[in-house]
Amino acid sequence: MAILEAKNVTKKFGTLRAVQNLSVSVNAGEIFGILGPNGSGKSTLIRCLTGQIKPEEGSISVLNIDVLQDPVGVRELVGIVPEQENPPSFLTAEEYLFFVAQIRKMKNSEKEIDSWFRFLEFGDQRNILCKDLSRGTRQKLMVAQAFMHKPALAFIDEPLINLDPVIQKKIKEYLVNYAKKGNSIFISTHILEIAGEICDRIGILNKGKIVYQGKPKKDLERFFLSSVKHV
């Protein structure tokens, strides 16, 4: 059963067509990877799918909610790790998660926050102001805020790029187990190994258009390069 269905989505920025007539669907319990070179439209697509920006054309349904009609309603149900990790400067990491938990109306959020800090090995970084955290730590914080409320569908934009190998491994395992419980993940990345390792299906995006949608191929690198015509 598709819990995300986007049909013929087009998003323009001035004369640039960042996403062109794109259709994509994600099923329950599935990890769907969207791959593409820099500037291919991956982040724009995620921002359209989560109602952060409005496409000019097309329809998007997430968890049976029309994203164009009720973007806030969609964001109540999903989790999002944005491309730019930029939490409010003057809150500490712990205060930021508390802030997000309150906006999401989570009960007993403190236990959940503690468990995320332990899982992502924050140590005493939890009490440091977000502006003073390293990029990697801020990235971990954004992962925690996206999954804290156990969303049925999570959108994650380049989630592992600034993280050390230990945390990368932990998060990859977490994502796989999370999907096994029936939840879905829409992951954008240009790291092909991640897609090959954890994704059930992938879409390859080039210049705003999906050029392939299906199971990850065995020789993903060669397939990817031929798809985006870099060979």
Binding site: P88, L91, E94, E95, I103, N127, L129
Partner: peptide
């Protein structure tokens, strides 16, 4: 700079602002 979680305490202090207490607390801390 390290701080204990004062967002929760400050939100409580502004509880008269009802659903906006959290945002007031954030503004105050910022």
């Amino acid at each position: 700079e390290a701080y204990e979680n004062s967002l929760k305490r400050t939100s409580k202090r502004f509880s008269f602002a009802k659903s906006y207490a959290l945002f007031w607390a954030k503004d105050y801390i910022d």
